[in-house]
């Protein structure tokens, strides 16, 4: 290969990273979750290097966007650090599990798990914005001990929003799993973190998403250093994706603010579900237990994702209609 071809390949990976960052920020799922399927399915990059590059890129995007949210005082740094106790521990467990899996050439497990996590993340992510501010719950004992009372200024509602976080322990349990998934699959697992803070701890959506954003970097840094020594980071790929994903998510955030038609998000969800199904099937195929023909698999993934997203669309539309009635 001439250097020019290699340079072209480098730029091609940057473009892939850019698309992943863009799609990740427009859907709220994060760049890494889109990057890994993109690199493995369309670029033929081994999943071991795809996850390594993804984990590194996740730190870049997290730091980039958290910078703004921390400054605006929407992220709750205190709650974030407290929950990192579990995510960092989880990330160590997850990365070591990854080392075990790759040492035993069980790559198919990573594909299948990745597909499953991606598909399961779609539902809570698509619901986003449904309960912007949860009803103020009575503080429990953990609210007091872990000082989880907070306030932020909501620019859209033009008022201060007060909140009490509850059930700190429940949050920690979810975070442990989020950390394990992050270390194992090389993603930030932001969707799962949001789930923990939203469902378990009753925090407002804005606080939840921005705090998760801030936390993702710390979790990914834990996994990254283990990935580094294990040799899962191909620096050429990682450099390309870090630059690409960062740029993509930056542009994504700008577009998101201006995007007037929220229904367009469904198109992106369809793409994500396609990637999810394809990962799942690819994993099963490499284990020789399911359709091994590439073309048939792609068609099957496309079909399944269309059905899946249509169902999800209808379910969430119905929920929204009920919300309006109430």
């Amino acid at each position: 290969m001439t250097p020019l071809v290699t340079l072209f390949n480098f730029l091609l990976i940057v473009v892939g990273g850019f698309s992943a960052g863009l799609l990740g920020s427009l859907t709220g799922l994060g760049g890494g979750t889109v990057l890994v399927p993109l690199l493995t399915i369309f670029y033929g990059i081994p999943i071991i290097y795809a996850t390594g590059a993804s984990l590194i890129s996740t730190i870049a995007t997290s730091a980039g966007s958290a910078s703004a949210y921390v400054k605006e005082r929407i992220s709750n740094v205190k709650i974030g650090i407290g929950l990192e106790v579990a995510t960092t521990a989880g990330a160590i467990i997850g990365s070591l599990l990854a080392v075990y899996v790759y040492d035993h050439r069980l790559q198919w497990i990573i594909y299948v798990l990745f597909g499953a996590v991606l598909l399961f993340s779609l539902y809570p992510t698509a619901q986003k914005g449904r309960h912007e501010i949860p009803p103020l719950k009575k503080p429990d004992w953990t609210t007091r001990i872990f000082q989880m009372t907070g306030v932020y200024y909501d620019a859209k509602l033009k008022k201060d929003v007060h909140y009490n976080g509850v059930k700190w322990w429940a949050g920690e349990i979810v975070m442990l799993f989020a950390g394990i998934i992050s270390g194992l699959l090389g993603i930030g697992s932001g969707a799962m973190k949001v789930l923990g803070m939203d469902w378990a701890m009753n925090l407002p959506m804005k606080v939840t998403t921005t705090t998760s954003n801030f936390m993702v970097g710390i979790t990914a840094a834990t996994g990254s250093s283990i990935y580094w020594y294990a040799g899962y980071i191909q620096v050429f790929i990682a450099a390309a994706t870090a630059i690409g994903v960062l740029a993509g998510s930056f542009v994504g955030t700008k577009i998101l603010v201006r995007m007037s038609n929220k229904n367009i998000r469904w198109l992106f969800f369809a793409v994500l579900s396609f990637l999810g199904v394809e990962m799942l099937l690819k994993g099963l195929a490499s284990n020789n237990s399911f359709v091994t023909s590439g073309t048939v698999r792609l068609a099957l993934s496309a079909l399944t994702s269309v059905i899946l997203i249509s169902c999800l669309f209808l379910v969430i539309r119905k929920q929204e209609a009920e919300d309006v009635k109430v």
Binding site: I56, G217, S224, A239
Partner: peptide, 9 residues
């Protein structure tokens, strides 16, 4: 560059 990134968080 990658280690600067890891050390940022």
């Amino acid at each position: 560059g990658l280690w600067v990134l890891i050390f940022t968080p």
